[in-house]
Design a binder for these strands. Structure first.
Lengths: 221, 221
DNA sequence: TTTCGAATACCCACCAGAGGGTATTTTTTA
DNA sequence: TAAAAAATACCCTCTGGTGGGTATTCGAAA
């Protein structure tokens, strides 16, 4: 045990933890693997770069847990979690993401992932997460925890926009005009205008540009 | 030598290559370090997460080369290269980026970096790059090379927008109105309108939304 | 059962920006 | 040094979206 990390759960393990890594950046994948395998109680049984390969790897190796990036090219880590949970309901997941937006984090946690660690966190936090999750607990990195607690005081934050409003925002972000949106959703152009106004009010963005940036930041695009 | 990589330049080295790593994601930094130090001719003398720390580390350790991420929080890898080149003109740089947009790559190469490797490339390419750059050569990963060659056939691609136009696009993306941009740059509102039209024409985006997405895709925001 | 949020819809005034030009000066490149 | 590219500037038209309202229906919580 090389690292000076206080991980209580570690000592209870009698056999190595089998891990599947998912990240679409090959170099990071290799680095992460090296990092994890420094600890000889942990074993990376497969490291893949996309969702289909990940599903196959999980099916083949039946790992103890899956550590996945959130941004995975065409589809995302969320869809990997969703698909896997259907096929292997007891599979454990740690999401390793660069996003710390409250809204996004909450959405991911709702999918039932067991841990959430930021890429800018330390490797120690990742190890803590691995052992906690292996031991049947959940683990949020310090920063994520702080963020979640903080968001308790701003209850609106999470569900700012209604489903309908988000639908319309997505269309706006796809360069639809009000007229086109109205036709698409079989509603009046007036209604679209109203929704649009509400979206502006709620997001506190005064311009289209700000709105698009909001949509980006909240991963609606 | 554990890896089966054919690196001619490696055998000529008589002493280890001192490397400074720069990446704002702590976990990746650790992983990268492990990856590189697998090769015992390579030594990571420092690993930091932002531009000021990087400058200090370079000054202190006088490394043989610096491997830096492109996205570094507030400032970017480009500004690191620029600042460092002023202070240490002979310092060698490899940019490790997730961006493969022709426009962006060319801009980075213009700064005089010695290597460009994508995060989705293999670790072997990174090693090739390190040894090539150490040996005084330049190194572009296979994918980057292919992209550069391809862009030869589409001469417009690379320098789509002029410096001024990009300046204005950035302001547009910062929610400036035409009037505000005019005041900011000490030019007439009419001129801003003209630039704006040219930007739309060149980017082939019909709407503000498309423009903002272009700006995102080309890392102007 | 009442109240509240969400979705629907309409009206009007106003203007910033899209879209169409043309033209001059400066800088870069051939 | 001539030609091309970039930056500057002005004019006109017109529409789409912004910002200000108000109001009805409907389902869900209280």
């Amino acid at each position: 045990m090389k690292w000076l990390v206080n991980i209580a759960a570690r000592d209870k393990l009698t056999q190595t933890v089998k891990i599947v890594l998912v990240d679409d950046h090959s170099i990071l994948l290799d680095g992460l693997k090296k990092l994890i395998e420094e600890d000889d109680m942990l074993s990376v049984v497969d490291a893949v770069g996309n969702v289909p390969d990940a599903i196959r790897a999980i099916d083949k190796h039946k790992p103890d847990l899956v550590i996945t990036d959130y941004n995975l090219g065409p589809d995302d880590g969320l869809s990997l979690v969703q698909k896997s949970k259907r096929l292997f309901p007891d599979m454990k997941f740690i999401v390793l993401s660069m996003h710390d937006e409250a809204h996004l984090v909450k959405e991911i946690l709702k999918e039932g992932v067991n841990g959430y660690v930021l890429k800018k966190d330390t490797k120690e936090e990742l190890l803590e997460a691995i052992y906690a999750v292996r031991g049947g607990k959940m683990y949020m990195s310090t920063e994520i925890n702080a963020m979640l607690v903080k968001s308790l005081y701003e209850p609106e934050e999470g569900k700012l926009l209604t489903a309908r409003e988000r639908e319309i925002l997505k269309l706006i972000a796809q360069e639809y005009s009000n007229k086109m949106i109205a036709e698409e959703l079989f509603i009046s152009e007036r209604t679209v205008e109203t929704h649009r106004k509400n979206i502006f009010r709620k997001t506190k963005t005064g311009s289209l540009v700000g709105l698009i940036k909001f949509a980006y930041a909240n991963n609606l695009i």
